[in-house]
């Protein structure tokens, strides 16, 4: 169980989190829902170890292997989709990691030519799917997905949702979203954050 108690975070004068309590049950998806500026991304960053809370306690994070889809794609633009995914995969030699990366990327509908291009040359939707696969292809046991389906057309979104649900099974996942339908798709426990 990942347990956060009394999380507080301010940026200058702005109080982003004020005494947040949050439990993430192991092997389940928890959806964090709320309007812009309610601190959803900040919670994700705290769980990823990228932001330190001003106050509060966190338990159950030690030793966890983490992965994330950030609000932005944050891909190595000059590298191909395969190399972006392979960059974060563990285990096996390079060829084995490449094979794994190719197989995972195909699952979200990326065709072979798209796998070989620099991601710079891919469409926004393709890049978003590469970012999603990068987060879920590995063996991380804590995954933060921050608006992971933004910018996808209906067909790509359906593929991405199916892939994500399959790959999130058995992992502890924090899904940050505006869309309650996404939370429902994952059967997630929903936590509402106020503005």
């Amino acid at each position: 169980m990942i347990r956060a108690r009394g999380l507080r975070k301010t940026f200058g004068e702005q109080v982003v989190l004020d005494g947040l309590d949050l439990d993430l049950a192991p092997g389940t998806v928890t959806a964090l829902v709320g309007p812009n500026g309610s601190g959803k991304t900040t919670v994700g960053r705290i769980l990823l170890g990228l932001t330190t809370p001003d106050a509060g306690t966190l338990h159950g994070l030690d030793g966890r292997r983490r992965a994330a889809v950030f609000q932005e794609n944050r891909l190595c633009e000059q590298l191909s989709a395969v190399r972006n995914v392979r960059l974060v995969l563990d285990g096996g030699d390079r060829a084995a990691r490449t094979t794994r990366a190719v197989a995972e990327l195909r699952r979200v509908g990326l065709d072979d030519p798209s796998l070989r291009k620099p991601v710079l040359d891919l469409s926004g939707g393709q890049r978003r799917r590469v970012a999603l696969v990068r987060a879920l292809a590995g063996d991380a046991d804590l995954v933060v997905l921050d608006e992971p389906f933004t910018g996808l057309d209906p067909e790509s979104r359906a593929q991405a949702l199916t892939y994500a649900r399959a790959r999130c099974a058995g992992r502890t996942v924090l899904l940050i979203t505006h869309d309650p339908a996404d939370a429902a798709w994952f059967g997630a426990a929903v936590v509402h954050l106020g503005a």
Partner: peptide
């Protein structure tokens, strides 16, 4: 810095 955060979160080995 965004890519460096990616490397931190995913624990990308230095040589990669």
């Amino acid at each position: 810095p965004a890519l460096l955060e990616v490397a931190t979160v995913f624990e990308v080995p230095t040589l990669r």
